[in-house]
Amino acid sequence: MTDIATSATRVAAVPGGRRRRLNGGGPRAGTIAAFLTPFFLPFFLFHLVPVAYAFWQSLLVVRREGGQYGTSYTTFGGFEQYLLVVQNTEFWGSIGRIGLFGVVQVPVMLFVALIMALLLDSPLLKLKSFFRITAFMPYAVPGVIAAIMWSFLYSPQLSPVVDLLNGIGVEADFLGPNAVLWSAANVSTWLWTGYNMLIMFSSLQAIPQELYEAARIDGASNWAIAWRIKVPIIAPSVILTTVFSIIGTLQLYGEPAVLRQISSNISSTYTPNMLAYAVASGNNYQQAAAISVVIAVITFVLSFGFMRLTSKRAGL
């Protein structure tokens, strides 16, 4: 992901910049090693090794010998686990569900974040730092705590909101079979809008004021400045937050897992990660590893596919 971040900033900051060639050898190599080791050592140990190990696990199958409680061993099974993933309707069901979630939730969240960022950047708004902090504040709440808080607002037994709606004759069921996905989406939106807004807002802050002055001299209204100048310039940030959101959606776990405590309409296989967890907790680590690898590949294809698509279009 550092790649995405750097490419995005590079595009914004130094178009056409060329990296200077480093002179090899001498004390410089040592310096480079000293600076890189603190990153690459943990990266290798805690990311590459486990990923490789998970991939290796996903190629194994369990065999067993000797009676009712015989001993088990694992052996190389090729892509047998992957075949099971492909055939697993629960898995594709969860991907479909999360797809629907993402197609709706991500645009809504990012649109709201963009509007909020533009408002904060507009000269018309007073009390800017107050609004900036309050908009960002939900992000400081841990996801699980947020989901628990929201579950109290959704529960028909406890929620003042439900009581109020019932009082004015609106039958509200936030945890029903069709509503619960959007209740979870609402928690995600609440949590992440401020964060995305801040990324967009910080790119807005980096735009030189001269551009606005020039635009104003040309007779551009605030509205025109916002849509014709600001939005196109911060497009890379919007793309970046979209990619983050696609990844986050595919990894969705916390919000539905917490809501599952009070709603039976969220199954143990509701999202891909919940399915992987359920399979792992049933001691089927090899299958869980295969599911994880497939989720990772889908995430990779979607996020990089999106980046390629948008960067070509935007001519970045």
Binding site: G143, F244, Q251, A257, A289, S292, A296
Partner: peptide, 23 residues
């Protein structure tokens, strides 16, 4: 639980998704 940002900052989607399970 899922934490979008940390995983992304650390090393990216591929790594992050697999790492939870590989642990």
């Amino acid at each position: 639980m899922s934490n979008r940002v940390t995983s992304i900052r650390l090393a990216g989607a591929v790594v992050a998704t697999a790492v939870g399970i590989s642990v």
